[in-house]
Nucleic acid binder design. Structure first.
Lengths: 349, 349
DNA sequence: CCGGCATCGGAGAGCGCTCTCCACCCCGTG
DNA sequence: CACGGGGTGGAGAGCGCTCTCCGATGCCGG
């Protein structure tokens, strides 16, 4: 029960541990970082000293010399001035999409001891903040989820030479790694299924036209239907929120009362569409079959939704994997990973 | 168009800026931090030099001396080994509750230039990680959201003398600041409303009994009903997820077919309950009135849900405010803030 | 028995910043 | 005209860590 605690005030430092262990700072550093060989008995002594002093390495000091922080920025980038009302942060986090991406990222990063820093970029100012944040070495790289295609942030990051990986292909090609879904293939899956179950008059509720993924789902669906001999597919535009799905469905049924199948560009809108159909006294799938997109676990529908599954968690983990690769090796080649969707058949179609 | 860029390699440092501006490091530092008076023309020169060199202060170096990082940990703490299936990160982020808290935290912190680091603590190991993370100065404090009452993390934080603020009162009293809702008052609001609209046979679907908030909502409801002359209120336990609300409602109606009003401990379960009622061919609110809890914007119900509003965003912002106060002043007194809920009347009751 | 080569611990120089002194200058005052 | 004091800039000492040298030691072959 000796009292050889550090004589210095404040938290114990390497120096303190070294003194207690009777070795030099360098040696303690070596055993902590497992670099080079250190005699077993000395390692032992050092570990005892660490336990005794309750030492924890200071991250600022370490990253000052290693130029690594062990954290990455997880940034959600979009336009704050969009359709008014809710502030950006509220809209972002209310979207189950973000939650799934965050979950996937955390799932991959956590076992590796690295933590994501949450950032929102919805204006020129905040985009610059993100770039500064990385430049000042607060994070080693960025995972960027853009809510619309023309986001300027990716280019800023590339120009600054900062490691970054995107969710989804950027609207205009820039040399940056990204992970995306084969949206057209997913939409085709839906078209095939609708046709196979005998639908003769199908329509679609698409996402916002300025979102590339929405475009791809729409055109992919139209093309697939064309291949099945349906060159014209009624379409209305939604905004990925339930209310727009409900409104869109109402409009579709009003303009084309004979519709017997609908492909909705995401599950949230599909949920709204189901509500609308119910209001209209139409049975699903008997009268109208409905297929959603994403396979959001949070979306509970009646009847259970048939949907195109987007493995967001896996995709997010893949983003994290790519980012770490870029950080570890600055010359790591720009890579794009395209993930294949699958159709999950439940009851709505 | 001079080329007096820094002669040194790598990103520009204070030294470089000082050289370009023709002043000392100390002066540049003073200008940047706005500390003490600096002659206007020198300030001007420094700003020009900063712009010219593209200087960004190095955060590691700064926090090495200031012992401040400008970031806080946002930790979600719970039990990973709970009802199997989904990993913890998936469950956490799928819950709209988390999103709203995160939104509120970010909304408050962002204008202040500080960013939250996302952490999950679902085991002894990961709890220690959180403590280490703070001890090694990676963040200045922690905002802790526990998913169950007996979470050991708050005590670990207190024992380590780390600044932290909790979401919700801890199960056993410990000297730590927290922000909570007046759950009992909220439940009473629901009881009063149900009674006022003429319900004579009311029941409740509660949250998990090991969550203090769920207990409070349940007992608060029971007590309020007792005051209205209904000493016995049928209750079933749910887990805050839609499926359990659906199952609970079915059980309730089976055991007490005459029920005409239900208080459901959160909106997600209320959504499930509505589904169940619809399956049973019961009209809401004519046959059975339903009141939820939380007022989650993400929950779209048919009919629109009457619910007890919990201003989560404001509460989260308040947590952040308290944490910053604790960080700024280590002697800041432990404080608990209790927020009053309100009843939002829509159509379901 | 000695030289050469691994092996392994220590010394010390920074990493980029803040902040305490200290020196200096320019007032006003006696 | 000397002196004190407020205001301003510079010098320099760290903050706690990593990592490159270097030197000491032990072991091998010649």
């Amino acid at each position: 029960m000796s009292t050889d605690l550090p004589h210095t005030p404040g938290p114990p430092t390497l120096e303190d541990v070294a003194r207690v262990a009777g070795v030099s700072r360098a040696t303690v550093s070596r055993v902590i970082n497992g670099i080079r060989n250190v005699a077993p008995e000395i390692q032992e002594a050092v570990h005892r000293a660490i336990a005794q002093t309750g030492y924890v390495p200071n991250r600022a000091a370490r990253s000052l010399v290693t130029r690594r922080t062990g954290s990455v920025a997880l940034v959600v980038s979009g336009a704050g001035d969009a359709k008014g009302g809710e502030p950006f942060e509220t809209r972002v986090f209310a979207d189950p999409f973000f939650g799934r991406v965050a979950g996937g990222v955390v799932g991959y990063l956590r076992p590796r001891g690295i933590h994501p820093v949450l950032m929102l970029a919805d204006s020129a100012q905040t985009r610059d903040d993100v770039v500064s944040f990385l430049r000042q070495g607060s994070a080693d790289g960025a995972l960027v989820v853009s809510t619309h295609g023309e986001d300027p942030l990716p280019k800023l990051l590339v120009d600054a030479g900062l490691p970054a990986v995107l969710w989804a292909r950027p609207a205009r090609p820039i040399p940056i790694s990204y992970v995306d879904l084969a949206h057209r293939a997913g939409a085709a899956l839906a078209a095939d299924h609708l046709v196979a179950r005998g639908c003769r008059r199908v329509a679609t509720i698409s996402g916002p036209f300025d979102v590339p993924a929405a475009q791809d789902r729409l055109s992919g669906f139209q093309e697939a239907m064309a291949r099945h001999g349906h060159p014209y597919v009624p379409a209305v535009e939604g905004d990925f929120m339930p209310a727009s799905g409900e409104a869109g469905m109402h409009r579709l049924m009003k303009e084309h009362p004979d519709i017997d199948g609908v492909f909705v560009a995401n599950d949230l809108m599909a949920q709204g569409a189901l509500l609308a159909l119910r209001d209209l006294g139409l049975r699903v799938p008997e009268d109208v079959a409905v297929i959603g997109f994403d396979d959001s676990p949070a979306v509970a529908c009646r009847p259970p939704l048939t949907t195109v599954r987007q493995p967001m968690e896996d995709m997010a983990a893949e983003m994290a994997r790519l980012l770490l690769a870029h950080i570890a090796d600055p010359n790591f080649e720009v890579t794009s990973v395209i993930v294949q969707p699958t159709l999950v058949v439940r009851e709505s179609a």
